[in-house]
Design a protein around this nucleic acid. Structure first.
Lengths: 136, 136
DNA sequence: ACTATATGTAATAATAATTGTTACATATTA
DNA sequence: TAATATGTAACAATTATTATTACATATAGT
């Protein structure tokens, strides 16, 4: 993970959780994160598809959480944005004629899967509510 | 981690461990990984500085492990190449005037540190010897 | 000493991934 | 119908990663 998507998404969700009555606009959210509003809208679109957020168009539109933050786990959020193994990428074409090269990617996959599972298990014990209450 | 450094370095070390009597050249190693030899030499240089490998220049030169693979832990290797937090980067300048923006990066750091420690602890229990014996 | 061969490293190019920007269609409320 | 917000495509800019070229330096064997 060499991108800011987890940070951005958890920031968005924390803002929504801290302002449960409001319909927060993408501009307002973007101003808190200090990034471009289009990026926020893209993440909000993704969060809607996943059922975590509801958005309204038009005047006085904006977004809210679609369900209680107590049932949204950080593992859910991580799974949405994760795009790389913790241990990084494999090399694409190790030499199949070499006994090490031939099996390396299989063995790396095993190790990677184990590390990924470890982190997911830990994040399953943390809710969005736990996280966002730190800001109040 | 969106790069191949862990995969490359553990591949290099596995080859050295599987050929303990030989002085493996960077070209030979590069051929097994199927990447450019200069990249291998850069990693070998780093591994020498860290005391994991010894290299010899000149004809019949090459590299060998500097110590038994039973005492090299995967956590050591991971620490050498890790360049990003597991949960990714933070946004650079969240808005300090927003209660969420103001504290977000501190809280993300806490969470990140916890996840990083989890993975490191697990990798501390795995030696290079454990890993490389899978190829024999 | 000379040749062959290997590391060490700088400089640069190429590629890929990520983030930011502009523009505008569409929807909604008052 | 005016104001305001989302939705999204297209593209630009930036950053990160990997590959390549070139050559200095070291070493072994003849």
């Amino acid at each position: 993970m060499n991108n800011t998507r987890f940070a951005t998404v958890i920031h968005i969700l924390s803002l929504l959780d801290c302002n449960p009555e409001e319909w927060l606009s993408s501009e307002w959210i973007a101003n808190s994160i200090n990034i471009n509003a289009v990026i926020v809208r893209k993440e909000l679109g993704m969060l809607q598809e996943q059922g975590l957020v509801i958005s309204r168009k038009g005047k006085d539109g904006g977004s809210q959480l679609a369900k209680p933050s107590t049932v949204v786990m950080l593992s859910d959020i991580y799974a949405l944005v994760k795009n790389a193994a913790i241990l990084g990428k494999k090399n694409q074409n190790p030499n199949p004629k070499c006994p090490v090269g031939k099996e390396m990617n299989n063995k790396l996959d095993l190790l990677s899967t184990e590390m990924d599972a470890l982190v997911m298990e830990s994040l399953k014990n943390k809710s969005l509510a736990d996280f966002s209450k730190q800001f109040r």
